[in-house]
Simulated scan of single mutants.
Amino acid sequence: MESIIIGGGKIGYNLLKTLKERGYQVTLVERDRDICARIADELDADVICGDGTDLEVLDDAGIAEAEIVAAVTGTDEENLVICQIAKISFHIQKTIARVNNPKNIEMFKALGVDRIVCSTEVIANLIESELDREEYRIIQTFERGSMLLVELDIGHSHPWCSMVVKDLRLPQECVITSIVREEKVIYPRGDTQIHEGDKVLFITNHTALMELMDFLRDRRS
Rank of each mutant, 00 (worst) to 15 (best):
T27C: 05
L55G: 03
L19T: 03
V150N: 01
G9L: 15
E77G: 10
L149R: 05
I123T: 10
N125S: 13
N79Y: 15
N205I: 00
L209D: 03
N79R: 10
P102K: 11
S162Y: 09
A64R: 15
K103R: 11
E106N: 07
H158A: 04
E211N: 13
G9R: 14
T204A: 00
A70E: 15
Q84K: 11
K166S: 05
E77I: 15
L80C: 11
E211T: 12
N125V: 15
F215D: 10
E77N: 12
S157I: 07
T192D: 00
A71I: 07
A61Y: 00
S89A: 14
I4H: 00
K184H: 11
C118Y: 11
E21M: 09
K109C: 03
M210K: 09
Q25A: 10
A124I: 15
G52S: 07
I123A: 14
R181I: 09
A64T: 15
Q84G: 10
Q172T: 10
F215S: 09
S221D: 08
L209N: 02
E106T: 07
G74D: 15
R33S: 13
A45D: 13
D114E: 11
T120K: 13
D41V: 04
I88M: 06
E183D: 09
S162T: 02
D198K: 03
D114Q: 11
T95H: 07
Y24S: 07
E182I: 10
I68D: 02
E128V: 00
E196Y: 03
V81N: 06
L111R: 09
W160N: 01
K184L: 11
K94A: 06
D51N: 15
Q193S: 08
R98D: 13
E67W: 01
A71T: 12
P188H: 03
M1P: 02
I4C: 01
E183A: 03
E211L: 11
E56K: 06
Q193H: 03
D34M: 04
I48N: 00
I48Y: 07
I176V: 11
T120Y: 07
Q93H: 15
I116T: 06
I92E: 13
D34T: 14
Q93E: 15
E121C: 08
I123N: 06
L170A: 04
D32H: 07
D132Y: 09
K166L: 00
L201T: 08
N14P: 12
E211P: 08
I116S: 03
D214H: 08
A66I: 00
P102T: 12
